[in-house]
Nucleic acid binder design. Structure first.
Length: 278
DNA sequence: AAAATAGACAACCGCCCTTTT
DNA sequence: AAAAAGGGCGGTTGTCTATTT
C-alpha cells in the first residue's frame, strides 16, 4: 500500500496557473508568509490547489528573487563543471547559482546546454571555445559524495573514467595524454580543490586552490598541507611539467587521508582518446 | 494555409528523508 | 519507537509556442 495522497486530487485544480491564482498566492504569502505549512496554505489563501503545487509555483516562479532570462557563459561553465562532478543533483547545483532554481537549471541542461557541450566536444573546433576554462567551485557540503562508475554512463563513444566504490577515480595517467595545450584537468577533493590549466608552451601552470569549502574547519580556504595550493583564495602559482603534474596527482590519490584524496575530471579533451566524465 | 514536428519550460508524480505526533 | 505528515528532490509529462513540412 502506498502512502496517502497529500490532498484530494479530484477537488484540486491542475495545470498552468492563471494570473488570478498567481496574485492570490503572492498576496497571501506577502501578508502571511508560508506559515511553515504548504499543505494548509491553499485553503487559507482561497486557492483550489494542492499545497505542493503552491510551493512549486512560489519557489520556481513567483518568488521575488528569481532570475529569469538567458544564462550567462559564466553560469554555463558553472553548471557544466558541477554537473561533471556531482551529476544531476540540481538543487545542489542551483545553490551555487543565485536566483536560479533547480527546475530552471534542469530544463536548461536537458534542452540546451547538454547539446551545446556535446556539439562542442564532437565538432572540436580550435577557434570556438564556449567553455574554454573550468570554473572554480565550492564544494557544496561536508558530506559531498561523488558519483561512482555504476552511476555514470558513457556518452556516445566517450569512455567513462573508472572509479572505485568511494567514487574516487583510479587515475591511470598513461591513459590521458596531453595532445595540445588546450587540454584541461580539474582536480577536486571533498574539502579542497585545485584547478590546473596549461599555458601556451604546454607546461602546466596555475595549479591553485579554488577557495573550496573546508568541511572540517567550516570555513572557506584550503588546507595548507599542500604547498602548491593557495590559502584563502590567494593563489600561489607554480609551474608544473606534465610529469610533475602526474606525480602530484598520484601522491594525493595514494594518501589515506580523505582530505587529501583528489578526484580528477577531464574536460574538453581534444584528442581521439577523448574522455568524458558524465 | 494547415498539419505535423520540435523546442521550451512549467508543472506534476512518486519516492525519499526529516520532522512531528 | 513507530507511524504519519510535510517538505524536498529528480525524473517525466503536459502544454504552449515556434518552426518545418
Amino acid at each position: 500500500m502506498g502512502r496517502a495522497p497529500c490532498c484530494d486530487k479530484s477537488k484540486v485544480k491542475k495545470g498552468p496557473w492563471s494570473p488570478q491564482e498567481d496574485t492570490k498566492l503572492k498576496d497571501y504569502i506577502h501578508k502571511n508568509g508560508t506559515g511553515g505549512n504548504w499543505i494548509a496554505l491553499p485553503h487559507k489563501a482561497g486557492l483550489k490547489r494542492c499545497g505542493k503545487s503552491c510551493r512549486l509555483r512560489w519557489l520556481n516562479y513567483l518568488r521575488p528573487d528569481i532570475k529569469h532570462g538567458e544564462f550567462s557563459d559564466h553560469e554555463d561553465r558553472l553548471i557544466y563543471t558541477l554537473f561533471s562532478s556531482i551529476g544531476s543533483r540540481w538543487s545542489v547545483i542551483a545553490a551555487q547559482l543565485p536566483g536560479r532554481t533547480d527546475n530552471d537549471i534542469k530544463n536548461y541542461w536537458n534542452t540546451k546546454l547538454k547539446k551545446k557541450i556535446m556539439n562542442f566536444i564532437s565538432t572540436n573546433h580550435q577557434t570556438e571555445k564556449p567553455l574554454h576554462h573550468l570554473e572554480s567551485v565550492n564544494c557544496p557540503s561536508s558530506n559531498y559524495s561523488y558519483p561512482t562508475s555504476s552511476s555514470v554512463t558513457a556518452v556516445d563513444n566517450h569512455p567513462v573514467l573508472p572509479s572505485d566504490d568511494h567514487g574516487y577515480i583510479n587515475v591511470d595517467m598513461e591513459t590521458y595524454r596531453v595532445k595540445d595545450n588546450s587540454t584541461l584537468f580539474m582536480l577536486e577533493g571533498d574539502a579542497q580543490a585545485a584547478d590546473c590549466s596549461s599555458n601556451s608552451d604546454g607546461r602546466w601552470h596555475h595549479v591553485y586552490g579554488s577557495g573550496a569549502f573546508d568541511a572540517h574547519n567550516n570555513m572557506g580556504g584550503l588546507k595548507t598541507s599542500n604547498s602548491y595550493m593557495g590559502i584563502d583564495g590567494n593563489y600561489s602559482t607554480m609551474e608544473f611539467s606534465l610529469e610533475e603534474f602526474k606525480k602530484l596527482i598520484s601522491t594525493n590519490l595514494c594518501s589515506s587521508n580523505t582530505n587529501n584524496n583528489l578526484n580528477v575530471f577531464v574536460d574538453e579533451l581534444k584528442a581521439e582518446e577523448n574522455i568524458m566524465y558524465y
